[in-house]
Write a protein that binds this DNA or RNA. Structure first.
Lengths: 333, 333
DNA sequence: TTGTACGCGTTATCAA
DNA sequence: TTGATAACGCGTACAA
């Protein structure tokens, strides 16, 4: 097999084997109606010439790419990487390949990616990107691209969705906390532009406090470990008590570390809970009480639902994952 | 724009605008030779019909897909996710999209993925997968697919590579360690089937010890945090001293945590170094001395090199990243 | 400046 | 069981 040759086409195989391209096509696609003799002859020729079919031409002819588009802000968050892994597992099992459309948390990029998804002719798409709204999903969908949307409630003919519920866990956490004598108000760590999941949680946090008529606090931090660590080290100069609900493990870890390094005790003085629990939660010391979701499973479920949607076999178009509270060392029982 | 309509083709746009498809094509590709009048007319029609070109047909006609294949074992490791992020950044900037081929650390899957890469007609590929060997890369390459290989030395007409050097740092670490009085032998944590990077490091570790005629130890552990933690908790019942070189931060963290939880002091009794340092290294307490590489930058560099390779403009086909030692709390100075 | 006609590498529908 | 031949949707010389 020569190097850097132009790729062999089905036509060249046909010629070399002394048959028509229709026959070669039949052999490739393992359809019947081919004599054992010609089949082996063709297969031998294919091997000899090193022929590989062109996925492009196949896709153009069949109108199926066996590609799934995955729209995410970035693969750089542990929970997103976990989800991606779940998607990828099922995709491999079912013979699909993933095309990645990373938006980078900007509305502009997200819209550009929508265009690319449409142009790329994927067989379906999984969207987990808070920049994208209902109209965007409808747009992508109007180009006959079945879509699973993660973390937003949208249903439609060719649209399914997966959502998360933190409400129950959050409520219980809050009520348990205030059931104890003379506690300080809880503090919710607000991160600017961190997406719907945090926004929903924050809303619920506030509503829950109003319901039981308790005070609460909101604090703004930057979405970076070192920045948060610095800010809290300063904060702990004047504050010696607190219960914090943070978005991610690394944010929670920053608070815990800042507290510990400031000579405060966790959980006696400072308590911290993380909303999106990952591996970090049980590796750091003290370990962090977290709300956990099996993100890998979220990915797997998304992909399974999408495949059903593509085959028009999806019955339940909406699915909900309930977060579970894993209590660890960063809170008191 | 109706929902679920069949997609509008360039031909329908041409007809609706009262021009030929060639003219529409020119407008799409922003080539000149079109009157301002007809251009606006065509553009208006495109918008009205909601026309999007078919990437498939374009690719088939031009022999360019603007897709880059990325072959990795999994996106679930922090350092791989970081690299993926770097690749993705540059890809977006340059108008490419990534297709993910995840192999899952099995030779069989890896070979199947090679086939898929070839069939998919990507414009180029970045391979970071220890299951894949030189012949596999040559194969993929023989189908005129320029390739950047990460963590393996291969050069060829259309092949470039990026490699890592841990040797210098490792040597210095070892020599510094034994320059102090009466130390125990160092222990290298061996993980089965963890890839070339670890293998090379281990080889160097051994060679370096032999050179200075010092004893050393090798320990086998499982590549899982909790398993390693359990094993070491047991181990520390009978061993109260040690210097360990671990593969990943989470392995190192498992050792550190096992030591701390067993009442041993880090770094006075137990010292630990991690080969592949990530964010974990400075989030856990005590922080972990690590050899760090900017994996995001590795990804960016890979993509830049690949683009040059595609354009036949790549001059230096081999690039090396040197690991740097970041000393933290898990070792003594 | 615009249009015609062919090629890209397949699949699929007919006849033979 | 085979083989022409027409799609599939687009780019592009070449001609007008």
């Amino acid at each position: 097999m020569d190097n850097l040759k132009d790729r062999v086409t089905i036509y060249q195989v046909a010629q070399a084997a002394g048959v028509s391209l229709a026959t070669v096509s039949r052999v490739i696609n393992k359809q019947g109606n081919v004599t054992e003799a010609t089949r082996t002859k063709v297969e031998e020729t294919i091997k000899r010439l090193g022929y590989k079919p062109s996925g492009l031409a196949q896709a153009l002819a069949t109108n199926r790419t066996t590609n799934i588009g995955v729209v995410i802000p970035s693969a750089n968050y542990v929970y997103i990487a976990n989800m991606l892994n779940g998607i990828s597992e099922v995709a491999k099992e079912k013979g699909f390949v993933l095309t990645l459309f990373t938006t980078g948390r900007s509305r502009e990029d997200a819209l550009a990616m929508i265009e690319k998804v449409i142009v790329s002719h994927v067989d379906g798409a999984i969207i987990f990107d808070d920049e994208l709204d209902e109209e965007d999903v409808e747009k992508i969908n109007s180009y006959s691209c079945p879509t699973i949307v993660v973390n937003k409630k949208i249903v439609g003919d060719r649209v399914g969705c997966i959502n998360f519920s933190y409400g129950a866990v959050l409520d219980k956490l809050i009520k348990d906390y205030y059931s104890r004598p003379e506690e300080n108000p809880m503090t919710f760590i607000h991160v600017h532009n961190a997406g719907r999941l945090l926004t929903h949680a924050e809303r619920r946090f506030i509503a829950s406090h109003q319901e039981i008529e308790k005070e609460y606090k909101i604090m703004n931090v930057d979405d970076s470990y070192s920045r948060t660590y610095t800010d809290f080290t300063k904060y702990f100069e004047n504050h010696k008590k607190g219960y914090f609900i943070a978005y991610r493990d690394s944010t929670a870890a920053a608070i815990v570390n800042a507290a510990t390094d400031s000579g405060l005790r966790v959980p006696e003085d400072i308590q911290v809970v993380s909303l999106i629990g990952t591996k970090y939660g049980y590796i750091v010391r003290p370990t962090i009480t977290s709300m956990v979701l099996d993100w890998q499973e979220v990915g797997r479920r998304s992909m399974y639902m999408l495949i059903d949607l593509i085959r028009r076999e999806l019955e339940e178009k909406s699915y909900k994952f309930d977060a579970k509270l894993v209590e660890r060392q960063s809170t008191q029982r």
